[in-house]
């Protein structure tokens, strides 16, 4: 007897409906596949729960000093802790970034833009969530606004440090292509949207830190999805 397709078992474990009734028939008679599915469901459940654990705080700064003193570590010659890459935090941040790109992943931040003028119509909007390179205080929002004569992407950010170079706003298709829209100054800017850009495809707004003269996309600071 052939066992169930592992791809289908994975989808079932993730809670997707699988229209192939022969899989259900097979599961009724095959204990091996049933236990396989049960194990994968457990993994999916714990995997989903990790969402709550993505932004774990580090212990207070002086804890390392206490540990170093107790274990006789040399604290004089090493690079200060905060300047070294934090692998744990880094992959948590990656997780956060991936989640933001998804449909329901927008991280709620307080609205920081003022209400649009009466003559304007908001076509889409989204909060921008902080990525790994941005300080904890960073936040932002983006709106697609139709004014009397044009459509703009209105981006507003707050809590961002002065850039070494500049901050640039991009539209991103979530996969491979990024469209540069313009430079963000004083935390806010209206950027004209070319009519040829399909916002159903380019739904992710990205704010990046760019070095002077850097043509390609730099370091993402904030990201969010228009909805």
């Amino acid at each position: 007897m052939a066992h169930a397709d592992p791809d289908l078992l994975t989808l079932l474990a993730l809670g997707e409906p699988v229209p192939d009734v022969s899989v259900e028939d097979h599961l009724r008679v095959c204990a091996t596949c049933r236990s396989e599915l049960a194990a994968l469901r457990e993994v999916a459940t714990v995997g989903r729960e990790t969402r709550a654990e993505r932004d774990l705080p580090m212990p207070s700064e002086d804890l390392w000093t206490r540990i170093a003193a107790e274990t006789g570590q040399d604290t004089s010659s090493v690079v200060p802790l905060r300047r070294r890459p934090r692998r744990w935090r880094a992959f948590l941040a990656v997780a956060a970034a991936a989640a933001v790109i998804g449909a329901a992943g927008a991280v709620a931040v307080d609205r920081i833009t003022t209400a649009p003028a009466a003559s304007e119509q908001v076509l889409a909007q989204g909060d921008l969530a902080r990525l790994a390179s941005a300080p904890d205080s960073a936040r932002g929002s983006a709106r697609v606004v139709r004014t009397a004569d044009r459509t703009v992407l209105r981006v507003s950010v707050d809590g961002m440090p002065a850039p070494d170079g500049l901050y640039q706003v991009w539209l991103f298709d979530g996969a491979a292509t990024m469209i540069p829209l313009g430079v963000l100054t004083n935390g806010q800017a209206d950027m004209p949207l070319p009519e040829t850009v399909d916002l159903n495809t380019y739904r992710v707004v990205d704010v990046s830190a760019q070095r002077w003269g850097q043509q390609e996309h730099g370091t993402s600071m904030l990201q969010g999805r228009l909805g």
Partner: peptide
């Protein structure tokens, strides 16, 4: 959760992104 979170962090980036879209955003394949 910590074990699984570390394992997620060690996946190849594209595999991780796909899996997290399923886990955190409840997207279908």
């Amino acid at each position: 959760r910590m074990v699984v979170l570390e394992a997620i962090g060690e996946l190849p980036p594209q595999q991780r992104q796909v899996l997290l879209l399923a886990f955190y955003d409840d997207l279908t394949h």
